[in-house]
Write a protein that binds this DNA or RNA. Structure first.
Length: 221
DNA sequence: GCGACAG
DNA sequence: ATCTTGTCGC
């Protein structure tokens, strides 16, 4: 079976039902230790005009934010990009690259939304539920929800609200730069997600785990 | 009905 | 996401 979804033989309706079921497994209780030891950043890029999916992972010491290991995994792209269903396209590669790290992190920063998603299961939340790891979503754009613009100074933030729910934060991570969309993935609270991102900013728009994973996935690092 | 729409 | 150098502005 293959129609508007290319090679993917599933259905949009089925995928959404799966998201609703998995979203019920998401925990917003903060399980991250006060001083985690290892952090990791994850991101996905594409090669061969999209035919190849490339996932990158970077493991770093939480205290110094210095990278200690990095891995890249390539596999055939299985599905086209469909807003709201991003994880079905990118999650397999992320799980594979996680397995290649010397050991799992105490907290994972995933490029994309956490619960700031129509059905509260963005790729960072899906990644958390699938792996059991605490996770945070760090996106460059809004998928859903409304918000006021945060002030001009680094650290200023406003809540992102969708259908009456507080689903994340719009954070000015760096002056004169577009804000980031931060939301809990799994086993991290709303406040915890914001705090963790603020603590890993180092003068760039993206928090260190995400910045390093980004440059690897985009064939720069 | 129309527009928006992570990567 | 990706095609791509220099350039304008703070």
């Amino acid at each position: 079976m293959s129609t508007a979804f290319g090679d993917w033989d599933g259905s949009i309706v089925e995928a959404r039902r799966m998201q609703e079921r998995l979203a019920a497994e998401v925990s917003l209780r903060d399980d991250v230790r006060e001083t985690p030891r290892w952090l990791a950043g994850f991101d996905v890029g594409f090669e061969d005009e999209g035919a190849t999916t490339r996932a990158a992972a970077i493991l770093l010491a939480a205290d110094t934010l210095q990278p200690v290991a990095s891995e890249i995994v390539r596999m055939p792209t299985s599905m086209p990009y469909v807003p709201g269903l991003l994880s079905f396209r990118e999650l397999p590669a992320l799980v594979a690259v996680l397995a290649r790290l010397p050991h799992p992190p105490d907290l994972a920063f995933v490029d994309g939304q956490g619960i700031a998603h129509p059905r509260r299961l963005g790729i960072a939340a899906h990644f958390g539920v699938a792996t059991g790891l605490p996770s945070i979503g760090v996106a460059k754009n809004v998928l859903c929800g409304k918000h006021e613009a945060p002030g001009p100074s680094a650290g200023e933030h406003t809540p992102l609200v969708h259908r009456g729910d507080h689903i994340g934060w719009v954070l000015r991570s760096k002056p004169r730069c577009n804000p980031l969309i931060v939301s809990p993935g799994h086993r991290v609270s709303m406040q915890g997600a914001l705090d963790r991102v603020l603590r890993t900013l180092r003068g760039y728009r993206l928090p260190e785990p995400t910045r390093l994973a980004d440059r690897l996935a985009s064939r720069r690092g």
